[in-house]
């Protein structure tokens, strides 16, 4: 649910990074934070455990500029990926405009990817959203690891609709901005249809 303020001419949209534990959601945000001009970003907030596992969410507000006279800002959130944090994950999907699913390319994590994707689908339904209809992008992360599953095999099991997908190596930034752009673009196109 984007928030349009006609008075201050601002529009805010919410993007959520979803995916199994340790797939690199927080790393995506950290890279975006590092590479963004300080004037265009807010603080990166991480509610994490002492071992740097996401406990509730990471949050990064990002100003991307002006569209048709409206200052456009994206609020990026990650969810905690670990299975037992499902109650927290659900809360973060509230009012989402677009979802980025970060999949872990390592062979032993394929089941976790599938489980997380099913979990996303269900949790969206509880908020009245349909994954088939909302802006959605798939990121295949950790492409540099030796046990990475070939791309077509991953797509066979993880591609949900004809969503755009990107290969990524998040700590090096490969694919990070492409993924974000693709999602932001879908959200703005969706807005223009209203």
């Amino acid at each position: 649910m984007s928030f349009i303020n006609y008075s201050t001419r601002e529009i805010n949209c919410k993007i959520v990074y979803y995916g199994p534990g340790l797939c690199g959601k927080t790393t995506n945000l950290q890279y975006i934070y590092e590479k963004t001009n300080p004037a265009a970003k807010g603080k990166l907030i991480s509610l994490a455990t002492e071992t740097d596992r996401t406990l509730f969410f990471d949050f990064l507000p990002l100003d991307v500029g002006t569209v048709r006279g409206f200052k456009t800002r994206f609020h990026l959130y990650t969810v905690p990926g670990q299975v037992f944090y499902d109650a927290s994950r659900k809360l973060i999907l509230k009012g989402v405009d677009g979802v980025i699913f970060v999949a872990d390319s390592q062979e032993p994590r394929m089941d976790a990817n599938i489980e997380s994707l099913e979990n996303l689908e269900q949790n969206l339904v509880e908020h009245g959203f349909n994954l088939k209809l909302i802006p959605y992008v798939l990121q295949l992360n950790k492409r540099d690891l030796p046990t990475a599953v070939p791309v077509d095999e991953m797509l066979k099991v993880l591609r949900y609709k004809d969503e755009p997908y990107f290969e990524a190596i998040a700590p090096k930034g490969i694919g990070v901005f492409d993924t974000l752009k693709a999602c932001a673009k879908q959200i703005l196109v969706e807005l223009s249809k209203k």
């Binding site: 991307v64 569209v67 048709r68 006279g69 409206f70 932001a184 703005l188 807005l191 223009s192 209203k194």
Partner: peptide
């Protein structure tokens, strides 16, 4: 919507 006539160029310009 102020975005009714948004173009691909508008979106690309943002990024």
């Amino acid at each position: 919507s102020p975005f009714a006539e948004i173009t691909d160029e508008d979106i690309d310009a943002l990024f």
